[in-house]
Design a protein around this nucleic acid. Structure first.
Length: 447
RNA sequence: GUGGUUGUAGCUCAGUUGGUUAGAGCGCUUGAUUGUGGUUCAAGAGGUCGCCGGUUCGAACCCGGUCUUCCACCCCA
């Protein structure tokens, strides 16, 4: 056993895994581009100060900080206390990106003169979190984001929901999208008498699926929710759909109308019967910066957690000194979609391209001639490979079989004398003799 | 960050209350078939039992530490 190992929570991807991942990202990229989003790439590292304070206290702890180079302890006093949080800013000034939204906000803030608003960008890059790994949770994982800034229009929300539906239609993965609005939750917190502890109120609410409504009520009361209103709140969060929106309109009429608008126009345009968009007031979402609609996507019948999420942030660039640039965005979690497709066996068989023809190598006398035919096949767009060593026929056929290569091209002395090539179809076991000058045409015709 | 779990051949896993040369299936190599794969048969290669230390006459097995995996919290994609 080797002494080296891979870093915790990090992964290698072999050929088959890469092809499957590309299958997913291609589907996402294609839909993003069809909807008019343009690509953006940002660096792996940002200034630490760009990232801290954007994801809440918990989020800050999960940011991978990068040590300063050189004598990074220089600025820490000899008798410093061992409080890492206190000194980390002195030894670290940059960090790996934690998501794609904040780097995007940084980009918009620093390039405001160059971007034309509304600005629609997509970004498919890895992000890093110093989390403890589990199934579907990695320290390095790929996010696929589409965001638009500079528009308050709810049509953007409608469009993003349709992107979800279209992507999961392409991948044939049945999903449920849940939608809510932060202001509905704010209304609930106000009704509960804990408007001052809004975030904590949401965090508790978010756990309803896991711990049940009774525990949620208990924790709410501990937080300071008026006990006589806990039951009413419990009833509220169990409402859903159109009827739920009507009943909750008193909390925040604008917010419920907004959600209704998005659902209505989504349904008018949606072409994927296996993607449903449903209002669910129990949807909270953890991130601090959402201000309007929030969404979350789950794959049906797969226990992998959410495979996507997003929401509207009224003023993300505000923290970078650029006011009044509202935005809304969604994210796809590539790694979790991968797990879902794998579990449901939804990857097509042909995601990994395999060579179509293998040229048998008989040694110097005939290999040059066979190689020329392989070259001709490649120029004609046929994936072909030449067995590099002079090896036994058995071994070469075995290789073709193991690699799922369909045709084996044999040009030995007996073929050469007749001016033909033997072409064997490995799927049927049949073999035909084809004139040398017709090899390319023959293989094109059966492709 | 808290609590637990896992690690034995390339892969999936056995391995008795600690006992001498650590096993199976699949895969791999070679041959039966010196110009033909998938089936069959035969033979063969391959392991410091995650790593470090301790207990013991003796450790894959017991104890401690460490790394990794997975799980529950926390949080999230």
């Amino acid at each position: 056993m080797a002494k080296v190992s891979i870093a915790k929570g990090m992964r290698d991807f072999n050929a088959s895994e890469v092809f499957k991942r590309q299958y997913i990202t291609s589907a996402i990229r294609e839909v993003f581009e069809t909807y008019g989003y343009a690509p953006l790439e940002t660096p792996s590292m940002e200034n630490l100060s760009t990232l801290t304070g954007k994801y809440g206290d918990e989020g800050d702890k999960l940011i991978f900080r990068v040590l300063k180079s050189g004598d990074f302890l220089k600025s820490v006093p000899q008798d410093a206390s061992r409080d890492a949080g206190k000194w980390s800013a002195l030894v670290s000034d940059k960090a790996l990106r934690y998501d794609l939204t904040v780097p995007f906000a940084r980009y918009v803030s620093t390039n405001l003169n160059e971007v034309k608003l509304p600005f629609k960008r997509y970004q498919i890059q890895p992000v890093w979190r110093a989390d403890r790994p589990q199934k579907g949770r990695f320290r390095e994982f790929m996010q696929c984001d589409a965001d638009v800034v500079g528009s308050d229009s709810l049509w953007q929300e409608v469009e993003l929901m349709l992107i979800y539906a279209d992507v999961f239609k392409a991948l044939q993965l049945p999903v449920r999208i849940r939608i809510s609005n932060r202001n509905i939750l704010a209304g609930m917190a106000e009704f509960a008498g804990v408007a001052g502890s809004f975030m904590a109120f949401c965090t508790i609410l978010d756990k309803v699926d896991k711990i049940g409504i009774d525990k949620v009520k208990e924790q709410w009361v501990e937080l300071g929710v008026l006990p006589e209103r806990a039951d009413a709140l419990a009833n509220m969060i169990q409402l859903s759909g159109e009827a739920g929106l009507e009943k909750l309109a008193s909390l925040n009429a604008q917010a419920t109308e907004d959600v209704a608008f998005v659902v209505k126009h989504f349904n008018e345009n949606n072409a994927n019967p296996d993607a449903t968009l449903l209002f669910d007031p129990s949807l909270a979402r953890g991130l601090d910066y959402y201000t309007g609609c929030v969404f979350e996507v789950e794959a049906l019948d797969v226990s992998v957690g959410s495979i996507g999420g997003g929401g509207r942030y009224g003023d993300l660039t505000g923290i970078f000194g650029v006011k009044n640039v509202p935005g809304v965005g969604i994210s796809f979690g590539l790694d979790r979609i991968y797990i879902a497709l794998e579990e449901k066996k939804l990857f097509p068989n042909d995601v990994a391209p395999t060579p179509y023809v293998l040229g048998v190598n008989f040694g110097d006398a005939t290999s040059a001639r066979t190689f020329q035919h392989i070259t001709a096949l490649r120029r004609a767009g046929i994936m072909a490979e030449f067995y590099p060593e002079k090896a036994k026929m058995k071994k070469q056929f075995d290789y073709a079989n193991a690699r799922n290569i369909r045709f084996v091209l044999v040009i030995g002395d007996s073929e050469a004398e007749k001016g033909v090539a033997s072409i064997k179809d490995m799927t049927t076991g049949t073999q035909e003799e084809v004139k040398l000058e017709e090899v390319v045409g023959y293989l094109l015709s059966v492709a």
